[in-house]
Design a protein around this nucleic acid. Sequence first.
RNA 1: CGGGGCGUGGCGCAGUCUGGUAGCGCACCGCGUUUGGGACGCGGGGGUCGUGGGUUCAAAUCCCUCCGCCCCGACCA
Length: 522
Amino acid sequence: MVLHSAGMFASVTPAGTPGLLNIQHSTFNIQNLKLKPLSGDIMPKEGITPRDQDYSQWYLDIVRGADMADYAEVVRGCIVFKPTGYAIWEAMQSGLDQRIKATGHVNAYFPLLIPKSFLMKEAEHVEGFAPEVAEVTHAAGEELAEPYVIRPTSETIIGYFYAKWVRSWRDLPVLINQWANVMRWEMRTRPFLRTAEFLWQEGHTVHATEADAEQETLMILHDVYGDFIERDMAVPVIKGVKSEKEKFAGALRSYALEAMMQDGRALQAGTSHNLGQNFAKAFDITYTDQNNTVQHAWTTSWGVSTRLIGALIMTHSDDEGLVLPPRLAPTQVVVVPIYKNDQERSTVLETIERLTADWSGRLRFKIDDRDNLTPGYKFNEWELKGVPVRIEVGPKDVQKGSVAMARRDIPGKEGKQFVPQAGLTERITELLEIIQQGLYDRALRFREERTFTVSSYDELREAVEQGFARCYWAGSTADEKRIQDELKATIRVIPLEQPDTAGCCILTGQETTQQVIFARAY
RNA sequence: CGGGGCGUGGCGCAGUCUGGUAGCGCACCGCGUUUGGGACGCGGGGGUCGUGGGUUCAAAUCCCUCCGCCCCGACCA
């Protein structure tokens, strides 16, 4: 798929011709086909492949259609974050940064380049990351004595400095976060979900005891990530522990938040790792305790990335385009004026001026007064871009003291109503809250409908075709690998919430109290 | 790394089989009419056909080389 401008018909499905799909590479000429309205007022979006036809293509169409990103083309596997996409990341950064600081952390910044030897110091870590690092071998025309790697993550270089900075128990804990870019030379990339270079935050902390490190890891999981993703992104998550097979390379234990996408696959939305003393030992991060004994410290690391943008798209959006939750939407309300002549134009714009007078600081809004486009065109464009609420003001509204108010989460006539101009600001504010909550509820309902408790291998096989499978598990890493080979599903998470009763492992039949979630993952 | 596809104005494509004046739609520019769910008319501008080599009177088209990008799979946030 090549990104193309929004006006194109390339992979569109003409209404009522389901047989002629995926025309992108076919010679069938659809350029002269006029799209017909489906029912009443909603048209199939040009250039958006319906979800049930090709979910993966739909995702790429949304990214392009909403103008969030462009392929970097000249740099393999990278994307350009266009202003619309970057604005969403900025909103995410703001929500996360607030929470990170509210829980006692501070921001700092470490180098992009890491001496290659650093990566080699922690055995599991090397094995995990070596295959996907990019190296810098030359600079200023000279070959370097020791190559650098472009950070795939910063545990090693930060560990080096922490070893220098930490001397006493009084220096602990160290609670630092970094906003940065990292690079992992992945085989297969997709905009936001997996790109060779991505943006993220990575927290790196040092503690005196195992209990302190564990508490930090869990606090990030709940109070920072869980709170942000569920409240601001309106994406419900299952929190839990990663299996041995899925944990971070070099961690003692990894916690994760898993979300379900609209095709039933799991997406890891964030991770929080208790690194034990592994990195402290590899980098010699030690402190002298109250009894004058030198101890290895305990460290943690945790991160979320621009992948969250992918999660946001795949949780809420529909065949009409992007759907953004109001709290993260860079533009929450768009106002579209409607008029036939200059005289109407000026009265309509005056009305809009008056209506929006008290919006600054309360609502993030845009007035779309472009003169060369029809209202219908604008409606479609803002729908595609996911703006939560649209206000239309025309000559009739000026007369009647009304406006048309349309909500993005319910596309078409059904979500549009005429409301009085009086009290509009409060009404919109209220509606934004309703939409925010509605998106969360809808996503949660979807996940629950697609989560199956299974007790046999056959049921497991069927369940992972649809969504999440919850089952008892006492198998080994090898067993998990076998299931991955056979069903393409892995243990996404061992939920924190576990049943009181025991049951039989789905594979070995052994009795256990541990339940896990199996799913296919992004 | 395996499988597939594609490189031709900004975007999407046709033209390649069968060599002979580079074309279409959208976008863009100008003027006019339009504007409550993707407007229309008229007039314009814009392309060393991915790279390098070869064959030929003549190459987007035939032959060889290289490069890049996208999609699907195994690996991964």
